[in-house]
Simulated assay, not measured.
Amino acid sequence: MTFKPLKIGKYVIEKPIIQGGMGVGISWDQLAGTVSKEGGLGVVSAVGTGVYKNRKYL
């Protein structure tokens, strides 16, 4: 099975796979960045940001 690239404005997502926000410490910079580097669309969650990096920024 093959998928066509997804175009959003001037951006092209090579692999039309979107990692949605999962919140509470799961879909932050590391996961979203890795998904994006692999050609998908990584989404950073805004839920539970107070527990980022083991509550370092509380």
Rank of each mutant, 00 (worst) to 15 (best):
A32P: 04
G42Q: 06
K37E: 13
V47K: 09
G42H: 02
I13M: 00
T49C: 04
G40Y: 09
I13A: 00
G25S: 01
Y11W: 00
K7V: 15
E14K: 01
T2F: 03
K53D: 04
N54E: 13
E38N: 05
G50F: 02
I8F: 00
K10I: 13
Y52Q: 15
S36Y: 02
G33P: 01
L58G: 12
E14A: 06
V47I: 07
Q19D: 10
G48M: 02
I26T: 09
G48I: 00
I26K: 06
L31I: 12
M22Q: 03
G39D: 07
F3C: 10
K4R: 08
T2A: 01
S27M: 14
Q19W: 02
S36I: 10
A46G: 14
G40E: 00
I8Y: 00
K4M: 13
V43Q: 03
G25L: 02
V44N: 12
T2P: 05
V44K: 12
G20A: 13
G33C: 14
V44H: 14
V12K: 00
L31D: 02
I17H: 01
V43G: 11
G20V: 07
G39Q: 03
L6G: 07
G40K: 12
G9H: 05
S36K: 09
Q19G: 05
E38Y: 05
N54S: 14
K7C: 12
K10R: 01
T49G: 03
K7N: 07
I8K: 02
E38W: 05
G21I: 10
G33R: 11
K4C: 07
F3T: 07
L58F: 11
Y57I: 03
T34W: 07
G25E: 02
K53N: 13
G48H: 05
V44R: 13
P16L: 03
Y11N: 12
T49E: 01
K10C: 11
G39T: 11
W28Q: 09
T49S: 01
L31M: 08
G20I: 04
N54F: 14
K37H: 10
W28S: 09
P16T: 15
V12T: 15
K56V: 05
P5N: 03
S36F: 10
V12H: 00
G21W: 12
E38H: 03
T34Q: 10
G33N: 07
G50R: 10
G39M: 11
M1T: 06
P16G: 13
R55H: 13
V44T: 06
M1F: 09
L6K: 04
I13T: 15
E38C: 06
A32S: 14
Y11I: 08
M22F: 01
T2L: 07
L58C: 14
S36Q: 07
L58E: 10
E38F: 05
V24Q: 04
G39L: 11
G23Y: 04
D29W: 13
S27V: 11
Q30P: 08
V12I: 11
K56P: 03
L6P: 03
K56T: 05
K53V: 06
K10V: 15
V43M: 11
K53Q: 13
G25N: 00
V24E: 04
G20R: 02
Q19N: 09
G48R: 04
G21C: 15
K7Q: 09
Y11A: 14
G9V: 15
Y57S: 08
K37A: 15
G40N: 07
V51Q: 08
G23V: 05
D29C: 10
E14S: 04
G9N: 03
